[in-house]
């Protein structure tokens, strides 16, 4: 049996969900007997592969770059999992939606700046008017809420998936866990 191709993607989040994924500790080794991590901030691969079986998305969709990335990932993924509250609800990144882009940028780059206050115009992707959860942009097959989702929930979900079963994680995690 060929190994399941697994990928993880990091959008607008704190990387805590990836840390929680790593918190599965030695169970990762058992998992990787059935799966290959083909793309991730944790590995070196720069291009998203042609077809991936399972992709975990951490973070909300906050910039035009995020939109492009998530569309590409969706097109090349069989089962897409929204991992953590940012991907599922918008969570902390979406708290700026109440204020709008301009005041947020002003607060971050002018009011709070200690040196040369200026709003960056190059090298940074453009912020969307509203931060949105992943499923508002592309179809999501499984939602795994939590801030971050507990390692046990991530491990359970992945071990079910590599065995070809759709996991039910509803009682292993919740918003804010």
């Amino acid at each position: 049996m060929s190994k399941v191709k697994l990928a993880t993607v990091w959008l607008d989040g704190c990387s805590g969900c990836h840390m929680s994924f790593l918190d599965t500790d030695e169970r990762l080794i058992a998992l990787l007997e059935h799966a290959d991590l083909v793309y991730s901030p944790l590995v070196d691969e720069k291009n998203f592969p042609d077809m991936v079986d399972v992709t975990l998305i951490e973070g909300s969709v906050s910039t035009n770059e995020d939109v492009e990335k998530i569309r590409k990932v969706r097109a090349h993924t069989r089962i897409l999992i929204a991992l953590g509250d940012c991907a599922v609800t918008g969570n902390v990144p979406a708290m700026r939606n109440t204020f709008g882009v301009e005041p947020t940028m002003h607060r971050a780059y002018i009011e709070m700046a200690q040196l040369q206050p200026q709003i960056p115009t190059t090298s940074l992707p453009k912020l969307l008017d509203k931060v949105v959860p992943v499923h508002e942009v592309v179809a999501v097959d499984l939602h795994l809420p939590g801030c971050p989702p507990p390692a046990d929930a991530i491990f359970y979900a992945l071990s079910e998936l590599v065995n070809g079963r759709m996991p039910d994680v509803k009682h292993l995690t919740r918003f804010g866990k």
Binding site: D85, T89, A94, C147, K170, R174, F175, G176
Partner: peptide, 23 residues
Amino acid sequence: VCSVCVANGFCELQSMAEALGMD
């Protein structure tokens, strides 16, 4: 925003979402 709320873990809205499987 459950993750930054004082009531995280003691919130009836949050636990109701869990109980009813609203993910």
